[in-house]
Amino acid sequence: MKNPIGNLNKIFDSRIRLGVMSILMVNEEVSFNDLKTMMEVTDGNLASHLVNLEENGFIKVHKGFIGRKTNTTYSITKAGEKAFKEHIEALENMIKGVR
């Protein structure tokens, strides 16, 4: 039998990265500030996790302006969606396996 834990994505071990992905799954585009408020984390902490997700090709960054202020928004990529769904499936399988 295949080990169900093997399907868990190491990148989603972090609660913050998992949270960001959850939010981006149900919202088309979310700004840095909104993510910060929802995750209740500091700028630096969130930024490093976002860079990690971006480098893995799971999220896309859009840099824009509102007036003169920069407005950075994030959205999920196809690859990110796929990885996230597989991660959820793996979690579900683990629960089923326990029973």
Binding site: I5, D13, R15, S22, V26, D34, L91, M94, I95
Partner: peptide, 23 residues
Amino acid sequence: MDSQHQPLETLQDIKRMMERSSR
């Protein structure tokens, strides 16, 4: 947090994040 040891809690956490961010 290590998500590998509490799959149910992690799933509930994901659901909560989704709800909280969209509703």
